[in-house]
Design a protein around this nucleic acid. Structure first.
Lengths: 334, 334
DNA sequence: TTGTATGCGTTATCAC
DNA sequence: GTGATAACGCATACAA
C-alpha cells in the first residue's frame, strides 16, 4: 500500500495525497476529507524510509545512556519514552559503559542513524570540549551542567547538585555526625562525581570538619556492587564513620548491604544517604534518605528543550531544577 | 557522502561499490581493497533509509515490553541490547502498560516500522489467538510459553515456571509454613499470573493445605506499590500468614516494606519469597529469596532464536530454561 | 487547488 | 568482474 495506490483509489494525484497526509495548506476540504477517509479505511502508513530518504533526515532522537548499571538512567529513559510516545519522533536508545567516551560514540551513531537530535544521559565536559564541535544536530545534556560548554547546539538540564550535596552534608553535620565517609564515582573520569565531591568538600570546610579524600572518599562504579565494595573498603580501616553519603542510590543500597554484612545497623550505627531518589528507595528497609532528582521533570524538560531547538534557533538554554533532599529512615542523629 | 562520491573517488562504478560494501562475490580483490580503504578513510556509512527503502525491509528488531514497572523487563531489555550491539540489527523498544493488548500494538508498529522481527517481553495467549495470524514476521515470545500457540512464525523462551513455583511452595511447606499468602497478577488478564497461580494450587493440593483464592490470593500490578498494597490487604484480614509468595521481586520488595510498616519482621515473623531474581535482590536487607529466571540466558536465547528464523525456515522452537530457586535470608523455617 | 516530474541513496538486474 | 540503469515510496518545485 503506497500513496500511488491511494491515488488510483481516490482519483487524486500522489501530490495531493502527500500534501493531505502532511497537513499542508492549499488542499480543498473535499480532497482532504476523501483522502483521509481512504487512508483511514485501509490503515495506511507513510513509508518512513522513503520519507526520510527524501527529506534527508530521520525522526529519530538518539538517547545516549552513559552507565547502564545506574538505575537512575533506566528510569529516566522510561520517563522520556512515555513522553515521546504518540509524537512523530522515535527514540533510539544506546547504552554504554560509564567509562566510554559518549561524544565519540555519538559521532559514530550520528553518521549511522542521522538522528534529528541527541539526548546525552550523563556526560563529561572534557569529552565535549574535545570533539563535540563535530556534532551539528541539536543536543541536550541531561543530569550534567552544560553552561560552561560554548556550543550553540547544546542545551542542558540538571539539578543544582553541588548545593544539594553541600546542604545534605551540612545537615548530617547538624545531626551530630563528624566522621562522614563518602562513596562516589571516579572523579578523574566523571564530572558528576567531581561536582558532588566539591559539594562535600565545601560543607566540610565550612564546618571545619577534617576530611581526607585519601581515606574518607571511596571511588567506584555507579552500581550496587560498586557501593557494596566501597563501603567494605571504607570500613576496613577502622575509622568508625557514623554516616556515609553515597553519590547514587544504587551505591547506597550496596553500601547498606555491606554494612549489614559486617554487623553494623542502618541507621542505628551508621546513617546512609543516597542521591537520585529512585522509586525503590521508598520501599527498601530502611527507607532511603536521598537527594532526589525529579526524574519526571528532568525527562519533560529535556524533551521540551530538544523539540524547541528543532523548531526555532534560540540560544542554548541551561536549566537547573532544584534537587529535593528527602530525609528518610536511613539517616538519623548520632 | 554517498556511494556515488566513492565511485568518482575510486573510479569504480556504484554497482561495484555496493557489491563490496555488501560482501557480495564477483569482485576482484583489488577493487575490494581499494574501495574498502576509501570507505574507511572517510568513515563512510551506507544510508540506512535508502537501503531499507530498496530492500523493502528494515534491520529493526521491535521489542514490545508489556508492563513497564516490572524491573525484570528493564534488565532484560538491557541484556538484549548488549547482545544486539555490534550486530547489523537495531533495537526499537516500545513500552506499554501491562493491561494493554500487545498483539494489536505490535500490528500497528509493524505497519509503521516494518521490523524484521519481534520480541514480545510478556504476552497473553488470548491476544495471540485473536490477532497474531495477521503478523507475518518472525517473532519470539519471551517469559511466556508459546508451545500451545499454533503459529509458524512464533517461537518462545521461558522458564518452567509452574514447576518452579510448585517446588517453591512445597519447600515453604516443608519449612513448616501452613498459612501461606500469595501476591500475584490479575489472573484473568495475565497468563503468567495464571500459570504461577496453578503452580501454587498444585502444591497446596499435593500437601492438603487449605488455600482459598478469595482470601489467600491478592491480585495487583507487577510493581513495588502493587506488592505493597496487596500485602496490606492480605494482612488486613487477620489471617496470620507465616509466609508470602510473590509472583515478582518488585512485588516482594513492596510486600516486605508493607509488612515492616505494620510491625512485622521479615523473615522472623513472615517469610517472603519473590520471583525473577533481579540483581537488587542480592543487596536488599534481608536478601530476597526468589525463583530466579536467568536473564542472560533468556536474552541470549531469544535473540538467537529470532536471528535463526531470519536465516532459515525451521519449525518454531519453544524453549524452556530452568528456573533456579534461591533460598536467601528473607525465607526461613517457622 | 491540483497534477507532473524529478531525485533522495541504495540494490539488483541486466548487459558487456 | 564490471558498469549502466531501473526501481523503491515519498516530498516538492513547478506547471497548469
Amino acid at each position: 500500500m503506497t500513496i500511488k495506490d491511494l491515488s488510483v483509489q481516490t482519483g487524486y494525484s500522489v501530490g495531493t495525497i502527500s500534501r493531505v497526509l502532511n497537513n499542508h495548506p492549499n488542499v480543498s476540504d473535499k480532497a482532504r476529507k476523501v483522502i483521509l477517509e481512504a487512508a483511514e479505511a485501509c490503515g495506511f502508513q507513510l513509508n518512513t524510509n522513503a520519507q526520510q530518504l527524501k527529506q534527508q533526515r530521520s525522526q529519530n532522537i538518539l538517547v545516549l545512556v552513559k552507565g547502564s548499571s545506574n538505575q537512575l538512567f533506566g528510569s529516566l529513559v522510561e520517563a522520556i519514552q512515555r513522553r515521546v510516545a504518540g509524537s512523530p519522533f522515535h527514540l533510539v536508545v544506546d547504552y554504554m559503559d560509564e567509562d566510554n567516551n559518549e561524544v565519540l560514540r555519538a559521532l559514530q551513531l550520528c553518521r549511522e542513524k542521522k538522528p534529528l537530535g541527541l539526548l546525552f544521559l550523563g556526560g563529561n565536559k572534557s569529552n565535549f570540549l574535545a570533539d563535540f564541535d563535530r556534532i551539528d544536530v541539536p543536543c541536550v545534556l541531561v543530569t550534567s551542567d552544560g553552561s560552561e560548554l560554548p556550543f550553540r547546539n547544546l542545551s542542558s538540564v540538571c539539578c543544582n547538585e553541588d548545593l544539594a550535596v553541600k546542604d545534605t552534608i551540612e545537615h548530617l553535620i547538624q545531626l551530630g555526625h563528624r566522621r562522614i565517609g563518602i562513596i562516589g564515582g571516579h572523579r578523574e573520569r566523571s564530572d558528576t562525581a567531581q561536582r558532588r565531591f566539591e559539594g562535600c568538600q565545601a560543607a566540610f570546610r565550612a564546618h571545619d570538619i577534617p576530611f581526607n579524600p585519601e581515606l574518607d572518599y571511596a571511588s567506584t562504579r555507579f552500581s550496587y556492587l560498586g557501593g557494596y565494595r566501597a563501603a567494605q573498603l571504607l570500613f576496613s580501616r577502622g575509622l568508625n564513620y557514623t554516616a556515609i553519603f553515597c553519590m547514587a542510590d544504587v551505591m547506597a543500597m550496596g553500601a547498606i548491604r555491606a554494612l549489614t554484612d559486617s554487623g553494623l545497623r542502618v541507621p542505628e550505627d551508621v546513617s546512609v544517604v543516597g542521591f537520585d531518589g529512585l522509586p525503590i528507595g521508598e520501599f527498601i528497609v530502611p527507607r532511603l534518605a536521598t537527594v532526589s532528582q525529579d526524574i519526571e521533570t528532568l525527562a519533560q524538560r529535556s524533551i521540551e528543550l530538544l523539540r524547541q531547538s528543532f523548531d526555532t534557533d534560540l540560544d542554548p538554554i541551561h536549566e537547573v531544577i532544584p534537587a529535593q533532599i528527602q530525609w528518610k529512615e536511613s539517616a538519623r542523629p548520632v
